[in-house]
Design a protein around this nucleic acid. Sequence first.
DNA 1: TCGGTGCATCGACATTCGTCGATACAAGAC
DNA 2: GTCTTGTATCGACGAATGTCGATGCACCGA
Lengths: 134, 134
Amino acid sequence: MDVNIDMCQNGSMSNVKALPLLEPEAPEAVVPCCPPLTERPLTADEAEKTARMFKALGDPVRLRLFSLVASHEGGEACVCDISDVGVSQPTVSHHLKKLREAGLLTSERRGTWVYYRVEPSVVAAMGQMLGTLD
Amino acid sequence: MDVNIDMCQNGSMSNVKALPLLEPEAPEAVVPCCPPLTERPLTADEAEKTARMFKALGDPVRLRLFSLVASHEGGEACVCDISDVGVSQPTVSHHLKKLREAGLLTSERRGTWVYYRVEPSVVAAMGQMLGTLD
DNA sequence: TCGGTGCATCGACATTCGTCGATACAAGAC
DNA sequence: GTCTTGTATCGACGAATGTCGATGCACCGA
């Protein structure tokens, strides 16, 4: 089970080159998806894509991890800063991977530590579907 | 409105008697939940509650059903109007129940048919959690 | 009263998911 | 080099989830 690469908007320019290790596959770019949910019914394809983003926030541990990153000073957080959510370290890592694969977080290794930050455009897209951001 | 919705995690089964009609749980209790995800880390309890709403939209079929109701003329839709999403009738019913339990939809029987409509405050609350990211 | 239609529930099944300990890998300190 | 710390992956397990056909209940028309 892997993520398939979706080209679109993978910031070809300002993107920091990741070190050779992490991020073997690009977190798919999910941004340009769908209109507000009230505008028209979603197609099956649109629903499939979008559901992945909502599902990523549909777990309590992931939601806490996400809000820990989102609310962390500087807009980013080292894993060590946020790993106290009551589950084991492998589980934290697993959930962070899910959030990355859904496009909600990005990660970058700097020295010993790995820093996560929110991908604002994806979150904005979700908000827009719910109708509050227009 | 007096019933509460607060079925926490254990109530997957018989928290509701099959009474003469639908609408076992009241909408309305999920609203005053949480601040924007960027404001501060969610507590475990907040995350538990909120994750249920996101999880409800985390399935492609449910997302389509939701958008079918949300975009339907008049703000509501009979089940018969939206049940063509490629799964069986019991499955549609099951998903609509999940959306009801999450507080995202309400239902009302009128004669032969059952009508679903979006609970706007709950959806607004979700949007608000995502909305102020920048 | 009876038959038909719309929707919900039940019971069963396969698949996915969340979790863990064990282990592997990366980087820095020594 | 070796040791230690931070993070990811692996393999396994039980629990939850999505799906279906069969069935039950509510309503309405004849």
